Amino acid sequence: MRCLPFAAELYRELQQQGLDAHTIWQNRSRFGRGPSWPGDGERLEDDLRWLITVGVLRREVDGQGLTSRFRLTPLGRDLLDSHQAELLKPADWNDRLRHALRRRWPF
């Protein structure tokens, strides 16, 4: 939880309503977590795809199919509710290294 790339405010917002990447990008001061904000839109999309891969986020679906909006999954809601304090703690170098290796080579 400490290595998740966004502030708890983003996850709370995604629990209430879907957000698209552009809205997230425009609200760095609100959704950013420390100095690790993505450098460009592609990196932001990578972070959002990673959260989909680990099961925290999902793409919102409407009658036409997938949309450009993201929402919190039930697993994401459980993590947010039961481990919210972990989002407030900064990740140490050991956690960041383990997370980076796991993200690069997930298996």
Rank of each mutant, 00 (worst) to 15 (best):
R2T: 10
P5A: 15
A7L: 00
L10S: 00
L10A: 01
L10I: 00
Y11M: 05
Q15G: 15
Q15L: 14
Q15F: 10
G18E: 01
G18F: 00
H22G: 05
H22P: 04
H22E: 11
W25N: 07
Q26F: 12
R28E: 11
R28M: 05
S29F: 02
F31N: 01
P35V: 14
G41W: 08
E42Y: 14
R43K: 09
L44E: 08
L44R: 15
D46T: 04
D47W: 13
L48Q: 03
I52D: 06
T53M: 14
T53W: 10
V56T: 05
V56C: 00
R58N: 12
R59M: 11
V61E: 05
D62F: 02
D62L: 07
Q64F: 09
G65W: 14
G65Y: 12
R69L: 04
T73S: 07
T73D: 05
P74H: 09
P74A: 11
R77D: 10
R77F: 04
D78G: 04
L79P: 02
L80W: 00
S82R: 10
S82H: 14
S82V: 13
S82I: 08
H83N: 07
Q84I: 13
Q84Y: 10
E86G: 14
E86W: 07
L87G: 07
L87A: 10
A91H: 06
W93G: 04
N94M: 08
D95W: 12
R98F: 09
H99S: 08
H99N: 07
R104F: 08
W105F: 12
W105I: 04
